[in-house]
Computed example of a mutant assay.
Amino acid sequence: MSAFAFFGALEIGLIYGLVALGVYLTFRVLDFPDLSVDGTFPMGAAVAATAIMGGINPWVATGMAIVVSAAMGWVTAFLTVRCGILNLLASILTMIAAFSINIRIMGRPNIALLGQETILTPFESWGEALYMRPLIVGVLVLLSAWLVVRLLNSDFGLGMRATGVNARMVAAQGASTGFYTYFCLAISNGFVGFAGALFAQTNSFADVTSGVGTIVVGLAAVILGQTIIPGKKIWVTILAVVVGSILYRLAVAFALSSGMFGLEASDLNLVTAVLVALALILPKMKRPGQRATGMKVSSPTTHVNHPSKPQTKPSSGEPL
């Protein structure tokens, strides 16, 4: 693998680390299967690209992308909480609607950003762009991961985590599970929209089909990262999610760039499916020497049965 391919895969892996953070919040924390990320990822790219082409500052354009994508996550929560639609179906409806909205935002299926100023442009003068771009993206991703860790370790984050584990218990304590759902879906899709905005600015284009398979990539990063770096602490889990995204992209780049497997760019979905399957299978494989049944064998000790003393009923004069 060449240096250009390595740093390119590292940059894309860091960008999709934001997607993995959003997927982790919905799937792992809230236990909400949110498929709307396939629509909010290109929405973040569409809003940022359209705003930059309109002469808006790239940082402001990125913030607009985050807000609009978070609003789409709020719509998914509204369909579930207020309208009573099944969470999976609600996210699919939002994803379908986002496709048409993205075309409306851009006015056409794609926008090119060649020659336009982005949030990475001022930093490219500090050094070689091949190395500086992954560094700046990495700083933004680490800052986002730190914010997620602080959120989940707070009292509010504890209530959000409890909602994903047992919503009835949270409601019995007088807390609003609906509010936690609104907030979690909004911030999750906000991170995904942030990733889409960075993707458009680093690749100099925004396309309405760029979000196809985003949920699969996010799940692959979460599963792969938690398999390689297991841990119960929040910061370890968040770090594992980001590392899983980077390793996933590096593995895909290595598999497609090396000729030993005979893979082509069209085999990307096949490589993704194989990596996710391996990440799911490996933790379930029995260690050598472990019994298949998983039953514990008690030690051959002799048990002595002692006769219990007969219980005597108290007399009428004794207190019960």
Rank of each mutant, 00 (worst) to 15 (best):
V217S: 13
F6D: 04
V139C: 09
A220P: 06
R108D: 10
A167I: 14
T62Q: 03
A279L: 01
T293Y: 11
P122R: 07
S258V: 15
A48M: 00
G39L: 01
A145K: 03
D34Y: 12
R133V: 10
I215E: 14
I234H: 03
G13N: 07
L224S: 05
S316A: 15
I238H: 07
R291G: 06
A51P: 00
L135T: 11
W235I: 12
L21Y: 02
S315K: 15
A90H: 08
G63M: 12
N57C: 09
M160T: 10
K313D: 14
D207H: 05
A277L: 14
A20V: 08
L86F: 10
K232L: 15
G225P: 05
A221W: 06
I101K: 06
L120S: 03
L219A: 10
F123Q: 06
A20F: 08
V60W: 10
M160P: 01
I105S: 03
T177S: 10
A197W: 05
F183D: 05
A65D: 04
V148R: 05
I15E: 02
V252Y: 09
R133I: 13
F27C: 08
S176P: 08
L25M: 10
L89E: 04
L120Q: 07
L142A: 13
P42W: 01
T312A: 09
A167R: 15
A220Q: 00
R133G: 03
I101V: 14
V149F: 07
T163F: 14
E264T: 15
L93C: 15
I136L: 08
A265H: 13
S36M: 08
L114N: 10
I119T: 00
M106H: 05
T94L: 11
G225S: 02
T118Q: 00
T209N: 15
L263V: 11
L247M: 12
Y131W: 13
S257Q: 15
S245Q: 02
L93G: 15
A167P: 11
S299F: 08
G115T: 10
P288K: 11
A220Y: 00
Y180H: 09
S316Y: 14
L250P: 03
T94W: 07
T80I: 02
P33F: 10
V19W: 05
S298F: 11
R161L: 07
T202Q: 06
V68H: 00
G262D: 10
T80S: 11
A200P: 04
I85G: 09
G138M: 04
V47Q: 02
T177P: 07
F191T: 02
G218F: 11
P33D: 11
T62D: 00
